[in-house]
Design a protein around this nucleic acid. Structure first.
Lengths: 112, 112
DNA sequence: TTGCGATATATACGTATATACATAACGCTT
DNA sequence: AAGCGTTATGTATATACGTATATATCGCAA
């Protein structure tokens, strides 16, 4: 079945640093409390996940994710309140876009 | 400067066949009257452009591009009325999306 | 029938991206 | 001091992608 797809992200000087991937990663970090487990569960390599977190924190006034190493459980990861807010805003934007996509019946009629 | 970017396309069973690239190609074909010139001018290889046209025509009830080979000028390419309509509809959709993007000030405030 | 300019098509190559792997560093607990 | 699980980081490998290159095909004109 044919369908319109749309993808949005935030970039700075051509460097993407927030989009569907980072957004899902943040949500999984919140649930798992661990960057490695979050990455593994969404099929992303740990290295890539770690790099995403670096870029994310670099582009926010306040860190969105706090990574801790060592300690009782070996370390861990947690999302800051600002991180949670980004997730909410991004998904709210996504829903608005989805509504707009659903209205594009004229374009779809021209294709099979 | 940071900015929200958005990209939309139409796909069928995961195969993308219309988006910003094909849209620009169609416009250039109309201007140039030739697929090879259109591709060259937008920095796209002829092969890729030719494949795009095949996919495009395959996913419309009526061909969007007509390719002619041989003849006085060696051949050429032209856009059908349906092709022109697709361009109009796609760009109208793009403008609506751009408006929505401009309204997302809350998301941008969280990032630097 | 030869030449021209465009479309049509296959193959080889180079590059960029991501993954896999290996290893180090860390800090609490026992 | 040893062990544990996690974060931190470099390197090598694989793979997908686009591009470059080469060649064939077509139909009108001279």
């Amino acid at each position: 079945m044919k369908k319109i797809k749309i993808k949005c992200w935030v970039e700075d000087e051509g460097e993407k640093f927030y989009g569907p991937g980072p957004n899902e990663l943040l949500k999984r970090i919140q649930k798992e409390g661990s960057l490695s487990r979050a990455a593994t569960k969404m099929g992303m390599s740990y290295k890539k996940a770690w790099e995403l977190v670096q870029r994310l924190n670099q582009h926010a006034d306040v860190p969105l994710v706090i990574l801790k190493k060592g300690g009782q459980h070996g370390g861990g990861a947690e999302i800051t309140p600002q991180g949670l807010e980004i997730i909410r805003e991004f998904e709210s934007f996504q829903r608005k876009i989805d509504q707009l996509v659903d209205q594009q019946t004229d374009l779809m009629k021209l294709l099979k």
